[in-house]
């Protein structure tokens, strides 16, 4: 199934965060974040991690490829940004399957390159601007695999 949430500005981001946190993070280990530069993938991740109790500053992992955070329960959350990868194999070389096998929540920005290495089940979050306005955004949440029954 999929659902769509529209927000007028970042103040309303908690609507999306709460929905994802209550409904999806217990079910999915992998959340893919798709959206153009500047649509707010890292901003969403910041808010989600904050609401999951992460105390540290959440900064962009573009250069580091992956940042690790700890929840108050001391479990890890991995925040990826695969923007800089050129080949899918590089995701394997950086240990993508090891991060997956850890069983911890993985949020992935620019996940397109991972296509053949995705787990069977994941949540896709697509962020788009509404009418090309600067602050409003549409979040489309889709569960995979899609239920064809």
């Amino acid at each position: 199934m999929s659902e769509t949430i529209n927000i007028a500005n970042t103040n309303e981001l908690s609507k999306v965060v709460n929905r994802v946190k209550q409904h999806y993070t217990p079910k999915y280990q992998v959340i893919l974040l798709k959206g153009d530069l500047g649509t707010g993938k890292t901003t969403f991740t910041k808010k989600l991690l904050e609401s999951l109790g992460v105390k540290e500053d959440v900064s962009s992992p573009t250069y580091t490829l992956v940042n690790e955070y700890k929840t108050p329960e001391n479990s890890s959350i991995f925040h990826f940004d695969l923007y800089r990868l050129n080949k899918p194999e590089e995701a394997l070389d950086m240990g993508w399957y090891d991060y997956l096998d850890s069983g911890n929540l993985c949020l992935v920005e620019w996940p397109e390159i991972l296509e053949s290495y995705l787990p069977n089940e994941f949540l896709l979050l697509e962020i788009n601007k509404i009418d090309n306005e600067e602050t409003s955004r549409q979040f489309k949440l889709s569960e995979y695999p899609k239920d064809f029954s």
Binding site: L37, T42, K46, D57, S59, S60, T62, Y63
Partner: peptide, 18 residues
């Protein structure tokens, strides 16, 4: 003090990509 989101070098890199 430090950056709360992107690093300065990252801003250079991303804007250059645009």
């Amino acid at each position: 003090g430090q950056t709360k989101d992107d690093a300065a070098g990252e801003a250079f890199d991303k804007i250059s990509k645009m």
